[in-house]
Amino acid sequence: MKIINLSKCYEEHIVLRKLNLFLEEGNVYALMGPSGCGKTTLLHILLGIVKADSGTVEGFSGKRFSAVFQENRLFEFLTAAENVEVVQRKPQNPEKIREILKEILPEASLDQKTGEFSGGMKRRAAIARAMLADSDVIVMDEPLTGLDETTRNQVISFILKYRRDRTLLFSTHQEKEVELFHAEKILLV
């Protein structure tokens, strides 16, 4: 998958300037860089949410995406399992989804609506949704923000377990996360 001469600016502010990247399918990539360097913009361009001003993105068409957004974007009137079910392209066994969710969320929370969740629990539900969706590429925007260290390790194990050789691209500020994910680092400046 290639990103060639990608540029994006918002009014006067240049966010991405002639970015070139080559991403190998099935690898894990960590997007790093200071705030405002264009990490989220790049992820949104790849997801097709934002249009680049110039440049091309090759090898992404026809790929199925799943994502973790900074704001979670959960259906707050549904449970975590229902949130996972809703985005499935093919119907899945709800019991199986519940069993998997127990690995990342407290069992008692599985009958609660995600609107009643704490920030950390919402984050984990959003991560579970992205990991359990039927996709080829997983994109995550600062997925571990707001999680304590124990939960963070638990979530990383969960992500690595359910990645199943799919391409994973995530943004982070933490060097340690790059190591824990065994990711290739992409530095945006």
Binding site: L47, A67, F69
Partner: peptide
């Protein structure tokens, strides 16, 4: 609009978008 973007990324059907995003 954020939920609509999310639904596009995950490839949700028009019917699901109606039920879970437009209806509420």
């Amino acid at each position: 609009p954020g939920m609509l973007e999310m639904s596009r990324v995950f490839g949700m059907s028009l019917w699901k978008k109606f039920l879970y995003i437009y209806r509420p």
